[in-house]
Each structure stands twice: as structure tokens, then as C-alpha cells.
């Protein structure tokens, strides 16, 4: 399966992913600059903030919801934490928009 990262300037990168990885893990292991992931995926730092508009996604947990209040770039209804979105098989082709800043 593949997911597509969309940079703030509109450029796109399609990346082949292994099922079960998180968006944050895919980004940091593929040199996607727009995601930092300072806490390594422990839902603590809010530096893997992304925007996704896709009905296939599961809804926010309370923890993710609280952390999204602290993102560097403004939160919208499409805001998610990349470390909390696990790439299950049904998310093939997911489009992930990157914010301009994470800190």
C-alpha cells in the first residue's frame, strides 16, 4: 500500500508503506521533513501534527485530542497526530497534508 505526503508548497511524495506502521514512523524513516516526532511516537510532544481529510480514519482518542491543542501550527478539524494513526490496509492511498512548522 502507499500513502501520499503533501508539502505546504503543494509538492507530493508517494511512499510505499508496510501495514501497521504509523504515519510518523513512515515519515521519519523516509526523510519526510515536515514531521519531527520528537517523542518517538509516545503521544507526548505534538510534533508529528498532520492534516487529513478522510472518512476512513478512526476518531480521535482523548489523549490525541488534548495534545492537538498544543500544535505549533493551528489546529483544524482535519488535525491528527501522525504517531496515533496506524496504517491499516483499508487506508491505501491516504493523503497526508504537512503543516509548515512543528515547533
Amino acid at each position: 500500500m502507499r500513502i501520499i505526503f503533501v508539502s505546504p508548497d503543494g509538492s507530493e511524495r508517494s511512499i510505499s508503506v508496510r501495514e501497521g506502521m504509523s504515519i510518523m514512523a513512515v515519515a521519519t524513516s523516509n526523510g519526510i521533513d515536515g514531521i519531527v516526532g520528537e517523542c518517538g511516537g509516545n503521544a507526548m510532544c505534538a510534533t508529528c501534527h498532520v492534516y487529513i481529510s478522510d472518512e476512513r480514519l478512526k476518531s480521535l482518542s482523548e489523549e490525541e485530542d488534548e495534545l492537538l491543542e498544543g500544535t505549533a501550527e493551528g489546529r483544524t478539524s482535519e488535525s491528527r497526530l501522525g504517531c496515533q494513526v496506524k496504517l491499516t490496509g483499508d487506508l491505501d492511498g491516504l493523503r497526508v497534508r504537512l503543516p509548515a512548522r512543528q515547533v
Partner: peptide, 10 residues
Amino acid sequence: VTSGHVGFGA
């Protein structure tokens, strides 16, 4: 890319 280091634990 330092993400994942265990200097702060995990």
C-alpha cells in the same frame, strides 16, 4: 533524525 532515541526513555 533523532526520533526514537531512548535518552528520555520510551
